Amino acid sequence: MSKSTNPPQIKLEPWSDADLGLLRLLNAPEMTEHLGGPETEEKILARHKRYLEIEGRGTGRMYAIVMLPERKPVGSIGYWNRVWQDEHVYEIGWGVLPPYQGKGIATMAVAAAVALARKEQKVRYVHAFPSIDNPASNAVCNKLGFSFLAECDFEYPPGSLMRCNDWRLDLHSAT
């Protein structure tokens, strides 16, 4: 008889000072291969500051993805204001550390973040822009009912164009 395993349980916790170590782990080459590579320590510290301040500015939210019950940080997720094709939308982005990938954690975290964004009722759409070469992130969008709109050139990091898929989810539609 095969042993059945329960899916992991996660929680999104607002980004805090304690998450700087997690951000450094998420900056590893294997985590940033679809994002232009690792950032310098100076850029990591600036990113951490932006993550800490985003909610207070009212321009989005950043979270640590923690595994329950031990509350171990395993990734990050956030959404933020963006103007895309002359429309105010949220952009959503996430990362899950390699030992925790392939367990459905990203899908659960994106679903939870979308639910939070939906409750805010600030924008109609949330967009995700995974690299066309990132099958795992594209699969998350597909599983959660995002609509594939098109391939597009996307500037990330600033000064570099990457080829992405534009996925959109209507926050006003029924859950």
Score class of each variant (00 low, 15 high):
161 L>G: 02
137 S>R: 06
164 C>R: 02
138 N>K: 15
160 S>A: 04
136 A>G: 07
61 R>F: 01
56 G>Y: 05
142 N>H: 10
65 I>W: 12
51 Y>N: 14
26 L>F: 06
114 V>T: 13
92 I>L: 14
100 Y>E: 05
173 S>F: 03
93 G>M: 10
158 P>C: 05
17 D>Y: 01
128 A>E: 07
149 L>P: 01
14 P>N: 04
29 P>N: 14
94 W>E: 03
170 D>I: 03
86 D>W: 10
72 K>L: 10
12 L>C: 01
71 R>P: 08
124 R>F: 08
136 A>N: 11
103 K>G: 05
125 Y>W: 14
124 R>T: 15
88 H>G: 11
34 H>L: 04
75 G>F: 01
47 R>W: 06
129 F>E: 11
111 A>N: 09
80 W>S: 03
162 M>H: 02
1 M>N: 06
7 P>N: 04
117 A>D: 09
51 Y>T: 07
36 G>A: 01
44 I>K: 06
26 L>R: 13
69 P>E: 03
107 T>I: 09
113 A>G: 06
121 Q>G: 12
76 S>Y: 05
142 N>G: 03
94 W>Q: 04
38 P>C: 08
132 I>L: 13
158 P>R: 11
88 H>N: 15
77 I>D: 10
66 V>E: 08
105 I>L: 06
84 W>M: 11
63 Y>F: 15
64 A>L: 05
115 A>M: 11
29 P>M: 11
164 C>A: 09
46 A>I: 08
105 I>A: 07
133 D>Y: 09
135 P>T: 04
58 G>Y: 11
55 E>I: 02
17 D>N: 03
170 D>G: 09
62 M>L: 10
77 I>K: 12
149 L>S: 05
73 P>H: 10
11 K>M: 01
130 P>K: 14
84 W>I: 12
111 A>G: 06
167 W>A: 03
83 V>N: 08
99 P>R: 11
26 L>E: 13
52 L>M: 13
34 H>P: 05
173 S>K: 15
93 G>E: 12
98 P>M: 05
89 V>Q: 00
23 L>Y: 10
132 I>K: 15
77 I>P: 11
6 N>R: 13
12 L>G: 03
77 I>T: 13
62 M>S: 14
80 W>A: 02
155 E>V: 04
103 K>F: 07
144 L>Q: 08
153 D>Y: 08
151 E>K: 15
54 I>L: 12
53 E>V: 07
150 A>K: 15
156 Y>P: 04
80 W>R: 06
37 G>K: 07
101 Q>H: 04
89 V>L: 03
45 L>V: 12
158 P>W: 03
